[in-house]
Write a protein that binds this DNA or RNA. Structure first.
Lengths: 334, 334
DNA sequence: CTGTTAGCGCATTCAC
DNA sequence: GTGAATGCGCTAACAG
């Protein structure tokens, strides 16, 4: 008996509901979904009862055919391997669901064949897209999604597209000031992939902030945001010519440096050089990685995203990116 | 000029393509999507060219209305905050996309109002659902999704539902054997929420394995898988009556214990008690948490899931869960 | 091989 | 207030 797949009867349609309630399809539709439409209390009652009895569920695809809306949001990411992503996406999904939309998560691996992939999928028809991945600029994304409701989070926005950007200047400035106040005169910077506009801007900000504080940038090391590249960079810090401070554009990289140079950080306290990360991931709250870092206000960041999802049209007053403040968080290594 | 929303003309339909190609809708449809259907080479050529010229994209919602399929997979999780999830979901999404399906990620926060939430969403109509969340049993999920294509990964499957389960017995047995071989005679177990069937089974396996190895389970501490609960448990290990080994049913918990008792693990080597985690998350490769752990073969686990997605009907030969082997990974703390 | 027809389930006119 | 009719974009069934 276990084998026979209890053949599922077709789901009840609004037609079934209407018939059972003794009204027309139109009335049933109005009673069920268009709150503000005129339906007699009695009929509404009947329809609701019938729907309940039948276990009726609307078919969003059929609905979308006329309304052009599916209550679906696409979230585009490079990948979700970065530790910093964890903190964000869980909340993002929760809040998106809270406003009645579901999330379709799209991973843009290496950027190749994206268009081909998106061409067929439902993602093309979503109500809105949040673009974290840096695979494409605003114009391309708008074309890819046949929608203007595209929120750029990757720094590749244009004058037409709504965008949110962390205002990294304040946090980076504060970190540099912190270092300077502690006597730091020389520094190294460990960067991520320079192909990203966000990263380029971030690097520029470090240059400016360090110069402003009278800290000499002795060295720049090209990493890739990863823990592994941090270990490599850390090994370069073993020699006698270590700078007074090492700034990293990602926390994972700073974690790698810390692990590579544990003997330089007894109890997390810096002995030879100070260490600063970026992102302020929640893992830094764990005891093993007490790394000073720069983070943005996650609630504010998310709040802006939700504001966009609630009313994409009205989001961007002037076409300029909405800025979310960042701040410096001091810990043992800084 | 920047203000005026370049009003997007309606996307071309298959009708437009057919007209431009000088064929009927049906022929266009066949040429575009049903590879195996008979269409003359010439017409196929024309249709493809027309589609390309128009930038035609299929409307999956309209299509689903007749085919009852959307190439959409729902992935249900409690939340994606656990570190162990990161390693898995990124790959899962990548591979799902590789077979031409997109992923709708659904977060079941506290289990409340799930049904209400799912009632309206597109998720109800997905081709298949992968259930990691332990919010519901197989029968409920089948009803919730109006589909039999539900793969249970949460241990709450029944005789009708396909399921994949890690075969935790081998890994746990190996960990206990490792401890016994190193002279461990007494142990504590730090557990997660006992409400989860998976967790209950896991705890039972520890009991059996420890007994088999002649290790006395002195104490069981109720945690919640989190780092914080590990720190709490770690503080309980400060006294003189610490056991020879502490087993945790999650790595995050073990990380918390390690951080709470760093002085007991110089260079990660155990001085007062040995420490074992569970899940073998990639973070354990980082230097700071060299915790012996138990992991499953991620590729095998994923491979089975993909096998299900490719052919849900043919997946479960006997209605019994497919088992994925686990193994013990020795590190400094064990 | 190809075109015609008939729905899929729903929201929306427009009459009544 | 309500119902009948129309069409959203597409595929399947049926003739040719």
């Amino acid at each position: 008996m276990a084998g026979s797949p209890e053949h599922r009867l077709p789901a009840p349609t609004i037609d079934d509901v209407a018939r059972l309630a003794g009204v027309s399809r139109a009335t049933a539709s109005r009673a069920l979904f268009s709150e503000k439409r005129p339906v007699s209390a009695l009929n509404r009652e009947r329809v609701l009862a019938a729907a309940d009895q039948l276990g009726y569920r609307i078919n969003p695809m059929a609905r979308s055919l006329t309304t052009k809306t599916v209550d679906l949001v696409a979230v585009l990411v490079n990948h979700i391997h970065d530790l910093s992503d964890l903190d964000l996406f869980d909340l993002l999904i929760a809040e998106t669901q809270a406003v009645g939309k579901q999330v379709i998560l799209i991973r843009i691996g290496s950027g190749d064949r994206v268009e081909e992939f998106l061409r067929r999928g439902i993602a093309y028809h979503v109500d809105a897209a949040l673009v974290f991945s840096d695979f494409a600029d605003a114009g391309t994304v708008r074309r890819l999604f046949h929608s203007d409701h595209v929120l750029m989070l990757n720094g590749r926005h244009d004058r037409l597209s709504p965008a949110i950007m962390p205002d990294e200047a304040t946090g980076i400035g504060a970190a540099a000031a912190d270092a300077a106040a502690k006597g730091v005169r020389t520094a190294a910077l460990v960067t991520g992939r320079a192909s990203s506009l966000v990263e380029q801007a971030r690097i520029d900000l470090y240059h400016q902030a360090l110069a402003r504080c009278g800290i000499e940038l002795r060295r720049t090391i090209r990493g890739d945001y990863s823990y592994a590249s941090g270990r490599d960079a850390g090994n370069l810090m073993a020699g006698p010519d270590a700078p007074d401070a090492v700034f990293c554009t990602s926390d994972a990289t700073a974690m790698g440096i810390l692990d590579a140079r544990r003997e330089d950080f007894p109890e997390g306290q810096p002995r030879r050089f100070r260490l600063y990360g970026f992102d302020n991931i929640s893992l830094l709250e764990f005891g093993a990685y007490p790394i000073s870092s720069i983070g943005y206000d996650k609630a504010a960041y998310l709040g802006e995203m939700m504001r966009f999802l609630r009313d994409p049209e009205g989001f961007a007053p002037a076409g300029s990116p909405v800025l979310v403040p960042t701040r410096f968080v001091a810990r043992a290594t800084g």
